[in-house]
Amino acid sequence: MKKILIPILLIAFFVAFWNQNSEKSNLYITIIAVLIFMFGMMKLSAKVPPKDDENDSEKI
């Protein structure tokens, strides 16, 4: 899943900035690209464990 999600995020990031730099930018394309990027980042960050684990604080 991670191997598929990272290229999709990169493409969405590229499309959002490319659309803004074009002479006639489309707002809807930018909004869709940013939404895809944000939802993808949420999926990736959900797999990262929290820094402060409750079990670690009990050991001290």
Rank of each mutant, 00 (worst) to 15 (best):
Met1Glu: 15
Met1Ser: 15
Met1Thr: 10
Met1Phe: 11
Met1Pro: 12
Met1Ile: 11
Lys2Val: 12
Lys2Asn: 14
Lys3Asp: 15
Lys3Val: 05
Lys3Ala: 15
Ile4Thr: 15
Ile4Ser: 13
Ile4Gln: 14
Leu5Phe: 02
Leu5Gly: 03
Leu5Trp: 06
Ile6Cys: 06
Ile6His: 09
Ile6Met: 12
Pro7Trp: 01
Pro7Asn: 04
Pro7Ile: 04
Pro7Thr: 03
Pro7Phe: 00
Ile8Leu: 14
Ile8Val: 14
Ile8Gln: 12
Leu10Val: 12
Ala12His: 01
Phe13Ile: 03
Phe14Ile: 12
Phe14Arg: 01
Phe14Ala: 15
Val15Asn: 01
Val15Phe: 02
Ala16Phe: 09
Ala16Thr: 04
Phe17Ile: 11
Phe17Cys: 02
Phe17Tyr: 07
Phe17Pro: 00
Asn19Phe: 01
Gln20Phe: 06
Asn21Met: 08
Asn21Val: 00
Asn21Phe: 08
Ser22Cys: 12
Glu23Arg: 09
Lys24Glu: 10
Lys24Asn: 13
Ser25Ala: 14
Ser25Lys: 10
Asn26Lys: 12
Asn26Arg: 08
Leu27Asp: 12
Tyr28His: 11
Tyr28Phe: 15
Ile29Pro: 00
Ile29Met: 04
Ile29Gln: 01
Thr30Phe: 11
Thr30Cys: 03
Ile31Trp: 08
Ile31Val: 12
Ile31Pro: 03
Ile31Asp: 11
Ile32Pro: 01
Ile32Met: 13
Ala33Lys: 02
Ala33His: 00
Ala33Arg: 00
Ala33Met: 01
Val34Cys: 02
Val34Ser: 02
Val34Asn: 08
Leu35Asn: 14
Leu35Phe: 15
Ile36Val: 15
Ile36Gln: 02
Ile36Phe: 08
Phe37His: 04
Met38Tyr: 12
Met38Trp: 13
Phe39Met: 13
Phe39Ser: 11
Phe39Arg: 03
Gly40His: 02
Gly40Gln: 02
Gly40Leu: 00
Met41Phe: 06
Met41Leu: 15
Met41Val: 05
Met42Ser: 10
Met42Pro: 00
Met42Tyr: 11
Met42Asn: 06
Met42Ile: 09
Lys43Asn: 13
Lys43Cys: 13
Lys43Pro: 00
Lys43Trp: 09
Lys43Ala: 15
Leu44Met: 09
Leu44Tyr: 06
Leu44Cys: 03
Leu44Phe: 01
Leu44Ala: 04
Ser45Ile: 10
Ser45His: 03
Ser45Phe: 12
Ala46Pro: 02
Ala46Lys: 11
Ala46Gly: 10
Val48Met: 07
Val48Gln: 09
Pro49Ile: 01
Pro49Tyr: 00
Pro49His: 02
Pro50Asn: 04
Pro50Ile: 02
Pro50Trp: 01
Pro50Glu: 11
Lys51Trp: 02
Asp52Ser: 04
Asp53Phe: 05
Asp53Arg: 13
Asp53Met: 08
Glu54Asn: 09
Glu54Lys: 06
Glu54Ile: 09
Glu54Leu: 11
Glu54Val: 07
Asn55Val: 09
Asn55Glu: 15
Asn55Trp: 05
Asp56Val: 05
Asp56Phe: 08
Asp56Pro: 00
Asp56Met: 06
Glu58Pro: 05
Glu58Ala: 08
Lys59Asp: 12
Lys59Glu: 14
Ile60Pro: 03
Ile60Glu: 14
Ile60Asp: 13
